[in-house]
Write a protein that binds this DNA or RNA. Structure first.
Length: 451
RNA sequence: GGCUAAGUGGCAGAGUGGUAAUGCAGCGGCCUGCAAAGCCGUCAACGCCGGUUCGAUUCCGACCUUAGCCUCCA
C-alpha cells in the first residue's frame, strides 16, 4: 500500500517514498520548555503521533525524532520571572510536557534530544556551513548568508527581496543583508552560553533542528519526512532547509507536512485574550479518548476551531463508539481488521473520515464480532482505547462511601416502590456530580465530566 | 501592503463535475416506575457574483469575510 501525504514543498498530496524499503525517518519540531503546554502544542504532537503509529504498521523500522528546546530567550525570561534557575525551569516544564503528552496517549519518539546536550554537534554543523561559504562571522555572531543559497524561499514560496521590503523591523548592524539569520549569537553577562570558536554564546533557533537531524541520521542522508505547525513554515523550516542543504550535498528532506493552527472561538490563542487552553486543565476534566477525538475530528491541515461544544461533541462520539463494546474482554485481534482504516489514513491522514468509518462499525459491533474487532483495533491505531473507558474515577474514599450509601438507599426505596423518595436520592447524587444509569437490573454511576 | 490557506445544516466537520457523509444538539417513537444509556426514524447546509460545461458545492476569475506567516509562536 502507498501512503499519500500532502507535501508543503509541492503543495500537493504525494506518495511517501522512503529511500530505504524498510526504514523511514521523520523529524518533528518539539516544544520550547518554558510554560505549560497548550492545546496547540497538543495538536502539533498528536498529528505526528498518528503518522508515527500508522508508519509503524507499514515499515519495519521507523525513526522518529522530536527535539526539546531548552535554550531560548523565553526560557531565560521565565527563569527570571519565577525567580529560579534555567535548569529548574527546563526540567520542570520538560517533565510537565512529557506527562501531558502521555496523558494524551502520545507515544514517545525514538529519539528526543535536548539542545543543551548537543552543543558540540551544533558548533560542528555551523563550522561546516561556514566552510562551505554559506555563513559568515560578524561581531561575535555567526550568520547564514541567504544570498548564497539560490533556492531560499522554496518552501514558503516567498521572494527574499519582497520580504525585506515589507519588513517592519530594523536591520541589525551585524547583518550583511537583512534576510540573513543567526546561527550563533553571543551570550553576555551570566546568560547561558558555551565556549565556541566565536566566543561564549548559544545557538540560534533554527540550527538545532538541522543539527540534530544530521546527528542522528548522519551528514550524507536525506530525511524522509519533516513536520511541524504551519506557523513554522517561515522562517524556521525555510531556514532549516537552507542550512541542511548547505551542510551536505544530500537533499535535506523530501517530504514536509504541516498541521493547522488551533483557534479558540475562531481567534488565535493568546495570553492577552486570556483564551489559552492548557492540556493540564483538559486532562483534569476530560480523558484521553475524548481529547484525542476532539483533536483528530478535524483534518490535520485545517484550522481546528475549539469551542465550548468541542468536548461535548467528542464525548458523544466516544460514548457512541465505546457503548457498542463496553465490558468487552481483551481478546486477540485479527490483523486484517486494520485494512479499511489504513486505506482511509493513507489518503493524507483523513482522520475525520476515519471516525465516520468507526461510527459505521459501531452500528453493527454489538452483534457482529468482526466489526467489533475492527472497531477496537482501528480505534487503537488512532490511540483510542475503547476497552478502558470505564476506568475507576479518581475520587476520595469518603466520597466513594457516600455514593455507595446513597445507591444502596435508593435501591431499597425502588424495590419497595417508593419512587418519589428514590428520585430524591438520585437528585442528591446529581448534586454530588454523580450521574447514574439503571440497566439490566444493575445501577452504574459515573462522575460527570464537567463537574 | 506582500505571501499562504479557508468559507458546507443550530454546532463540529468529510466529500464529490450529475442534486451532499458522520458526530453532537433538536424533534418523534421503542425501551424504562421515571430518567439516563441504547436502538429506530426525522428536520436542516455547499459566502457572494460572473465564466467554462448538457450540468458546478466541486474547475476558472473577481469580490466579500476569516485565519496564518512576513516579529525566535506548535
Amino acid at each position: 500500500m502507498t501512503i499519500k501525504l500532502y507535501n508543503t514543498l509541492s503543495r500537493k498530496k504525494e506518495i511517501i517514498r522512503p529511500q530505504k524499503e524498510d526504514l523511514i525517518t521523520m523529524y518533528v519540531c518539539g516544544p520550547t520548555v518554558y510554560s505549560h503546554p497548550h492545546i496547540g502544542n497538543a495538536r502539533a504532537a498528536i498529528v505526528p503521533d498518528i503518522l508515527f503509529r500508522f508508519l509503524q504498521t507499514k515499515y519495519s523500522q521507523v525513526i522518529y525524532i522530536r527535539n526539546i528546546t531548552d535554550v531560548d530567550d523565553k526560557i531565560i525570561e521565565a527563569a527570571e520571572k519565577e525567580n529560579t534557575s534555567i535548569d529548574k525551569i527546563t526540567n520542570k516544564y520538560t517533565e510537565i510536557y512529557k506527562n501531558n503528552m502521555s496523558g494524551l496517549g502520545i507515544l514517545d519518539p525514538t529519539y528526543e534530544p535536548k539542545v543543551t546536550e548537543k552543543i558540540p554537534n551544533i558548533i560542528n554543523s555551523i563550522e561546516k556551513i561556514i566552510k562551505n561559504g554559506n555563513a559568515y562571522v560578524s561581531e561575535s555572531h555567526v550568520l547564514f548568508n541567504t544570498k548564497s543559497y539560490d533556492s531560499y524561499g522554496q518552501l514558503s514560496r516567498k521572494k527574499l527581496d519582497e520580504m525585506i521590503d515589507g519588513a517592519r523591523v530594523d536591520v541589525a548592524s551585524y547583518k550583511k543583508y537583512p534576510g540573513d539569520f543567526i546561527l550563533w549569537k553571543p551570550s553576555i553577562g551570566d546568560s547561558p552560553g558555551w565556549k565556541s570558536p566565536w566566543g561564549k554564546g548559544r545557538p540560534g533557533w533554527h540550527i538545532e533542528c538541522t543539527s540534530m537531524v544530521k546527528d542522528v541520521l548522519g551528514d550524507d542522508t536525506t530525511l524522509d519526512i519533516h513536520g511541524g505547525g504551519n506557523d513554522l513554515i517561515f522562517p524556521h523550516h525555510e531556514n532549516e532547509i537552507a542550512q541542511g542543504n548547505c551542510m551536505s550535498k544530500k537533499n535535506y528532506c523530501n517530504h514536509w507536512f504541516h498541521n493547522g493552527i488551533v483557534l479558540v472561538d475562531k481567534k488565535k490563542m493568546s495570553k492577552s485574550l486570556g483564551n489559552v487552553i492548557l492540556v493540564n486543565n483538559l486532562l483534569k476534566k476530560s480523558n484521553k479518548n475524548i481529547l484525542r477525538a476532539a483533536l483528530l475530528s478535524t483534518h490535520y491541515r485545517q484550522p481546528l476551531n475549539w469551542t465550548k461544544k468541542t468536548l461535548s461533541n467528542a464525548s458523544g462520539l466516544i460514548q457512541r463508539l465505546s457503548s457498542s463494546i463496553e465490558h468487552e474482554k481483551q481478546e486477540t485481534l485479527d490483523s486484517t481488521a486494520l485494512d479499511e482504516i489504513s486505506d482511509i489514513l493513507s489518503d493524507d491522514l483523513n482522520t475525520p473520515e476515519a471516525f465516520r468509518y468507526l461510527t459505521g462499525l459501531a452500528k453493527h459491533a454489538k452483534r457482529n464480532k468482526n466489526d467489533r474487532y475492527a472497531l477496537m483495533q482501528s480505534s487503537m491505531l488512532l490511540g483510542i482505547d475503547l476497552n478502558h473507558t470505564t476506568e475507576e474515577p479518581d475520587i476520595t474514599d469518603e466520597l466513594r462511601d457516600k455514593i455507595e450509601t446513597l445507591l444502596t438507599k435508593r435501591s431499597k426505596l425502588r424495590n419497595s416502590g417508593q419512587y418519589d423518595e428514590a428520585d430524591t436520592v438520585r437528585q442528591e447524587l446529581s448534586d454530588l456530580g454523580v450521574s447514574i444509569e439503571d440497566s439490566s437490573g444493575k445501577t452504574t454511576w459515573k462522575i460527570d465530566a464537567d463537574k
